[in-house]
């Protein structure tokens, strides 16, 4: 029985995703030849070759919900975001997401150095799936939110890194996505901008689906309605922010003692 997703809904069903650590298929010829001749140790080397970024991941995010994802570096958080936005595809399982996806994944992706701030707003807006007319309508708000009014006609290669990320986040925030993916955006920008980002995300909360990856546990706690803690590509705990964060903190301090 096939059920249609609602707009803004995300569903992961038994997702597994692995990367090859040695380059194997798309790498060097000598690896392929080496594999053929390694004989006895081949089973072992095959295990080392594959690195599971995610295994057996299943969850659903409902429209209007804000899901936080926490875990150590390399746990697979960003891979989940990439799967939602269809940048990468799962090896096993099924990813479903319905609605326009706005991904603020890393600062500056999609901005072009040689172009001016204004040109970049139009370019980045288009990358996020906005039409020219939509961008035009939101243009003034985007500029105001980013606080780059004076530098609109300057090529952004002259911008500071803070201005960069403000520009990126602003366009994304006004692209009116059904699903907003946010990956560690708060690590950049000054305190004032961080505050505005959080406010913007708060204003989204309840109306839009947000998936928020961060190491900033306070921010997670203040925005998210549910949190997933992943470790080594697997879900350790999923549930209310306080409980899951407690578990995460407990585990990290334990592993630090060992």
């Amino acid at each position: 029985m096939k059920k249609e997703l609602q707009t803004g809904q995300i569903e992961f069903i038994n997702i597994a995703k692995s990367y090859r650590t040695s380059k194997g298929k798309y790498g060097l010829l000598r690896d392929i030849i080496g594999e053929k001749f390694s004989g006895l140790s081949s089973a072992k080397s095959k295990n080392q070759e594959k690195f599971y970024a995610l295994r057996n991941i299943s969850f659903t995010v409902n429209p209007g919900e804000c899901l936080g994802i926490i875990g150590n570096n390399g746990a697979g958080k960003s891979t989940i975001l990439k799967l939602i936005s269809k940048i990468t595809y799962p090896e096993k399982g099924l990813v479903k997401a319905r609605g326009r996806i706005g991904a603020f994944i890393e600062l500056g992706a999609g901005l072009h150095h040689e172009l001016t701030g204004k040109e970049n707003i139009y370019l980045y807006g288009a990358i996020l799936g906005m039409s020219k007319a939509e961008i035009k309508k939101q243009y003034r708000d985007i500029v105001r939110f980013a606080g780059i009014g004076k530098f609109l006609d300057v090529p952004i290669k002259k911008y500071s890194s803070g201005m960069y990320s403000r520009l990126g986040f602003s366009v994304c925030a006004f692209s009116d996505p059904d699903i907003l993916l946010v990956d560690e955006v708060l690590a950049v920008g000054d305190i004032d901008f961080q505050k505005r980002c959080l406010e913007k995300m708060h204003s989204f909360a309840g109306r839009k689906t947000i998936v928020f990856v961060s190491h900033n546990l306070d921010a997670i706690k203040s925005i998210c309605s549910r949190v997933i803690f992943i470790d080594g590509g697997e879900i350790v705990k999923i549930g209310r922010p306080n409980d899951v964060i407690k578990e995460y903190v407990r585990r990290s301090s334990k592993s630090r003692k060992n």
Partner: peptide, 20 residues
């Protein structure tokens, strides 16, 4: 569906090709 992006990219390509 992404035709506006194609236009925006083309516009960018033309602009940056002869910048500086």
């Amino acid at each position: 569906k992404f035709r506006e992006l194609l236009l925006a990219f083309t516009d960018k390509e033309i602009k940056i090709r002869y910048k500086q």
